[in-house]
Design a protein around this nucleic acid. Structure first.
Length: 479
RNA sequence: CGGGAUGUGGCUCAGCUUGGUAGAGCGCUUGGUUCGGGACCAAGAGGCCGGAGGUUCAAAUCCUCUCAUUCCGACCA
């Protein structure tokens, strides 16, 4: 358990948020930069976090009948070209393989930016009857999108994600699936990542290339910028028609299937960092933290301290993701700071004075509260603490989001809000792309979504053009 | 992809203007003393200065190209 961490200062979060973010991800050893621009190495601590996130989502996918599969990394160019909107959307950021060994390929191959095309082409091959449906498959993989500006987790040229791809007999069924999955995304984010999200529909302009409709969950970061955190697409029969996904229906006629796709990525890690983090570094939700509690022995050279510490560790390690830092080279104070920086939800201090009293000290990362607990009650107290920290992190994130959410009835108010209190702006929208464009041009804010939960803002006029508007939308600057 | 900044032991940086054989602090190793919020003493190890080319007797330093990071815009999960 050698500690190699360089414990150094982190730029204060409100002084320079970007630098704070970079400092945190590097110093907590979540990631490091790879030699190729836009690529990152996910280090052990970062990957452990990703695995815990994966488990939570994967569990929900399985519960709803989805099975995991794996499709290849490389896709022939001709496949990509089959769906017009899709190829136009992705072509600018596709990476190509043109050579194998020293042989030039007859057809160049794209490194998947997403897998609709290859998956649909295989579905087309397998599908013959309505009895085969639905297809409910998911894959965990990497994708490559050649991005111009990159930031670890938030936008990298390669990232890890899951992509669900389902096939249905009817449009209605596909729509139901699309909504079900965006609901799962919302629930997992809120329950396990402690990130409150706004869920709703993307505008035509912002929807997925080739989709009939895109639904999204949007989270708000500490700096008031929004982060698109997961999307679910109803692809209708667009890909079915492009890839000949046909089956013989109940009425003995040939019909096109209806498909959906949905994904969340390692970008969520960026969200966790930027929603919960503070001046001391990371603050990880207990339900997904790689280490839920760390035991730090105090005056560990003294008779019996280490024995007692390990005894405690052994008694908890089955129930919690535990760590014990009995390294001799750093002082307890150093360790306190170290594990706070790494966002470990609970620190357990155990020293000679505690042992005398048969107790230990639990210290919460989220609010610094110290709790003195009898040694034989640690397990149950820790269990409660996990729930209470999780809940309180969610509550705080929600309160923070609400404090950064405002209503605008006209553009003056819109700009004023964005300048004075950056965050979500709720406003009426007439539905035109012109207004969407104009708002973006004038303010830098984009339409994040038309939320499922519509509200009465006391106006029925578009915030931009003043025409009659029926939809309430969320706007924000976004990552 | 445009504009700015940066790149020197593991980390943070000095040295560059005015070319002349590479510096500090932290970290690391070993030994000892410490230990309830970033301990201390002593002795050590470690760098052809992002990469390539050029100018020069001589380049971390000057010139050209290139790669990467970062910030600001345009583009996208």
């Amino acid at each position: 358990m050698a500690k190699k961490n360089k414990v150094e200062e982190i730029t204060p979060i409100n002084e320079d948020f970007s630098r704070w973010y970079t400092d945190v991800i590097l110093k907590t050893e979540l990631v490091d930069y790879a030699p190729v621009k836009g690529f990152m190495v996910i280090r052990a601590y970062g990957y452990a976090l990703w695995e815990n996130i994966q488990k939570r989502f994967d569990n929900e996918f399985k519960k709803t009948g989805h099975k995991n599969v794996y499709f290849p990394l490389l896709i022939p160019e001709s496949y990509l070209n089959k769906e017009k909107e899709h190829v136009e959307g992705f072509a600018p950021e596709v990476a190509w393989v043109t050579q194998g060994g020293d042989t030039q390929l007859a057809e160049r191959l794209c490194i998947r930016p997403t897998s609709e095309t290859i998956i649909c082409s295989m579905y087309a091959k397998w599908l013959s009857s309505y009895r085969d449906l639905p297809y409910l498959f998911n894959q965990w993989c990497n994708v490559v999108r050649w991005e111009k500006t990159t930031r670890p987790f938030l936008r990298t040229s390669e990232f890890l994600w899951q992509e669900g791809h389902t096939l249905h007999e009817t449009f209605e069924e596909a729509q139901k699936e699309t909504m079900r999955m965006i609901g799962i995304y919302r629930d997992v984010c809120e329950k396990y990542l402690a990130i409150p999200v706004v869920s709703g529909q993307k505008s035509e302009k912002e929807k997925f290339a080739g989709a009939h409709a895109t639904y999204t969950i949007e989270a708000l970061m500490h700096d008031g910028q929004a982060l698109q955190s997961g999307t679910s697409h109803n692809l209708s029969d667009h890909f079915a028609k492009a890839f000949e996904m046909k089956f013989l229906g109940r009425d003995n006629t040939e019909q096109y299937a209806f498909s959906t796709s949905w994904g969340v990525s390692t970008r969520l890690i960026g969200g966790i960092i930027m929603v919960h983090g503070d001046d001391n570094g990371l603050k990880l939700p207990p339900y997904i933290a790689p280490t839920q509690a760390v035991i730090i022995p105090i005056a560990q050279h003294k008779e019996g301290v280490l024995d007692k510490a390990y005894e405690l560790y052994d008694s908890l390690k089955e129930q919690f993701r535990m760590e014990i830092d009995a390294s001799d080279m750093n002082s307890p104070g150093w360790k306190f700071n170290q594990y706070e920086m790494k966002g470990v939800p609970v620190r357990i201090e155990l020293g000679p004075k505690d042992i005398e009293k048969g107790q230990c000290v639990l210290v919460r990362r989220d609010n610094g509260e110290k709790i003195y607990v009898d040694l034989d009650e640690v397990s149950i107290q820790l269990e409660n603490l996990m729930d209470s920290i999780q809940q309180s992190m969610y509550d705080n994130a929600l309160a923070d989001r609400e404090s950064k959410t405002s209503v605008a009835k006209d553009m003056d108010e819109f700009k004023k809000n964005l300048a004075e209190n950056p965050g979500f702006i709720k406003a009426m929208w007439c539905g035109s792309e012109d207004c969407e464009d104009k708002i973006k041009e004038d303010t830098g804010a984009t339409l994040r979504c038309v939320p499922f939960a519509q509200e009465d803002l006391g106006s029925d006029r578009c915030v931009c053009c003043g025409q009659k508007a029926e939809k309430m939308a969320y706007f924000a600057r976004a990552y």
